[in-house]
Design a protein around this nucleic acid. Sequence first.
DNA 1: CTTTTATGCGAGACAGTCCTCGCATAACCG
DNA 2: CGGTTATGCGAGGACTGTCTCGCATAAAAG
Lengths: 201, 201
Amino acid sequence: MSSPPRSSPLAPKRQRGRDRVEAILAAATTVFGEKSYEAATMTEIAARASTAIGSLYRFFPTKDVLAAAVLERYGARLLHALDELVDRDPPLSPRDAAQGLLDIIQRLRTERSVVLSLLDSGVTLPDGTGTLRKALIGRMSQLLARLGGSPGLHDERAVMLLHLVKAIFALPQDHSVPRPAQDKEAVTVLRLYLEHAVASP
Amino acid sequence: MSSPPRSSPLAPKRQRGRDRVEAILAAATTVFGEKSYEAATMTEIAARASTAIGSLYRFFPTKDVLAAAVLERYGARLLHALDELVDRDPPLSPRDAAQGLLDIIQRLRTERSVVLSLLDSGVTLPDGTGTLRKALIGRMSQLLARLGGSPGLHDERAVMLLHLVKAIFALPQDHSVPRPAQDKEAVTVLRLYLEHAVASP
DNA sequence: CTTTTATGCGAGACAGTCCTCGCATAACCG
DNA sequence: CGGTTATGCGAGGACTGTCTCGCATAAAAG
């Protein structure tokens, strides 16, 4: 048999530990959002969480695990928001869907950069649901199914849609362009593509 | 006055050196294309170029300089292709422009990943033309101007267009989707957006 | 209080990376 | 041929980053 079900030494057992984990996750979110996975350092994350490096490693045994924990938390938030959009009771029009996607992206503004930074970084989710990328493509496929169009192309179009969403996620990095104009163009791109997906064979 | 015009110790003076530089640039292109700027190592680049680490540093004094040299070479290629597209003699239709952009992206398949990897990596071009990002946005703006539409929105739309092109550059990383279907969707996205830019106020 | 468990801490082991330096070799020049 | 210059080389210095380990402290349990 495998290892006995001993209590994991990683999970905090007391409130103090839980608070510390929270601070660490917050700091990690900031740092992973500012730099790439490789450029982010455990030392800086510990410093921003006002904790010692040893305390960080008490709860997160490796950098991978820490990144996965961050990705799981905010990835789940993103997936949940998408599920809500897909299951909305009056069936969606392409226009509504485009606006809904943009709303989700804007609501997650804080965690936007960290999701973006970790999405392509080979960091896998801890639960067995596969990568966040796969989960997102699945949601996009569901969205396309809800809207109609030829089901045979949903997989291809879901990938394209994910890339469009990623591009819009990344848009706010261009400080040169005023935000309202950016948003208008973003929702236009989404709407045009969704309308095309519904209308075309 | 600044430093005397002594011959730079960096540029190769003989054919042997020029060949070596070529091999180094080729290896660097591969490695920077496979990994991010930070994850790529000078040691691996030297190994792939079948050269010693000391020889690498003889021609490229820092990792930054090497990356900038790679980016300059392939960035220039990309910019030149875009100039050709913009200046085409029968004025472009949105449909032609979309197809032209896709053709460029596909023709540069080899250097695609390295441009993508270094574009957002803070690596600046050696010549004073600013970052590759700025240069690309300028080209996109020119393209929109050639096509028509309201000039007041060209800047905003150029940024959006650059992101779309970047997304399509990144598309082939999804091996799950067959290539022809991806290409069809890619050109559709570009065409829809360009037609919108021409038609809308 | 005493015992046990959870948490806090940071010096430092270990590995990897960028880059230097001095010497060896090859190519060109008179 | 000898002299000069360009190029090739890799051990190792200096630094940084991940992660370990043993002990100190705090808190709960008995």
